[in-house]
């Protein structure tokens, strides 16, 4: 049944397609092309082969960035896969105030990473709330250097990321939990399975598709970290410049009046290759379970 002229659909799609071409497809191809050139913001444009990629091997900051990313993933993936599920179970039941809790737990998600990082910076300051409470409780004598120590700064950024992500993944789990069949829970309960047992035997298998998706999203997002480390580490990646992420290096390389666009593009290609890994795992997992 054709009820329209042949060009009508194309007219409707044209704007979106134009945007897709100019701001997604072309930049994707162009990033690959630029990574083989010495283009700078205002100069250059020579083809220099794999020189940019060779440079990456000798970039000490890149080694730090990759190590930081791996640690980010190792901590965030397990924590953010399970904590939001427990949180979703807590607010899922129809009891008084659950709507209130759900909304407020989502607040850190809505807040800008910049604002959140500023809030945490003040919290973790040498003279901030956390150190103050620690001293008051007699746990600390001096101040813990959350924002200046190479490792404490990294783990502060990780804690911030977990704190900010809880509500986001909670909402994903909430819509998945709606599909877990009640009868299974009831049957298990009648058979005498306790809460913990039911969690592992009914809830987890019931939402395992969402779990796989969530853990892949966490892994990919861990590789995309920028604002949290940028603000918390005072723009430079901490005092020694070791608390950097891949995206921070991309921004540092490209920023300024004579940014190294070519090198930043090579780093972008590396970022893409790394994020593809978890996505391929997910695709394989989906095919196996289908």
């Amino acid at each position: 049944m054709t009820s329209h002229r042949w060009y009508t659909p194309w007219l409707l799609i044209a704007p979106a397609l134009l945007w897709l071409a100019v701001f997604s497809l072309w930049p994707a191809i162009n990033t690959g092309v630029l990574s083989f050139t010495d283009v700078h913001t205002l100069s250059g444009g020579r083809f220099i082969g794999v020189h940019n990629y060779a440079l990456m091997w000798h970039d000490p900051q890149l080694r730090d960035a990759i190590l930081n990313t791996l640690i980010f993933m190792a901590v965030c993936v397990p924590l953010l896969t399970f904590l939001p599920l427990l949180l979703a179970l807590l607010v899922q039941r129809t009891l008084p105030f659950m709507g209130f809790f759900r909304t407020v737990f989502y607040f850190p998600v809505i807040a800008s990473a910049v604002v959140v990082a500023l809030i945490w910076q003040w919290l973790l300051d040498d003279r901030g709330l956390v150190n103050g409470l620690g001293r008051q409780a007699g746990l600390l004598h001096g101040a813990l250097p959350f924002l200046t120590d190479r490792w404490l700064l990294l783990f502060s950024a990780i804690a911030l990321t977990v704190w900010k992500g809880l509500g986001y993944y909670m909402v994903l789990y909430l819509s998945a939990l709606g599909n877990v069949r009640r009868e299974l829970h009831e049957a298990a309960a009648v058979d005498g399975a306790g809460t913990v047992r039911r969690f592992w035997a009914v809830t987890v298998p019931g939402v395992r598709g969402t779990m796989a998706l969530v853990s892949v999203l966490i892994a990919v997002n861990a590789m995309r970290v920028f604002s949290e480390l940028y603000i918390l580490g005072g723009r430079t990646g901490g005092i020694g410049g070791q608390d950097v992420s891949l995206v921070m290096l991309i921004q540092q390389a490209a920023a300024g009046s004579d940014g190294r666009i070519g090198y930043a593009s090579a780093l972008s290609v590396l970022l893409f290759v790394l994020t593809i890994g978890p996505l391929l795992l997910l695709a394989r997992w989906n095919r196996r379970t289908d």
């Binding site: 701001f23 994707a28 995309r224």
Partner: peptide
């Protein structure tokens, strides 16, 4: 495609 991957080329555009 994570947005950060194409951000440099997008900036150029």
């Amino acid at each position: 495609l994570p947005g950060e991957v194409t951000i440099i080329s997008q900036y150029q555009t």
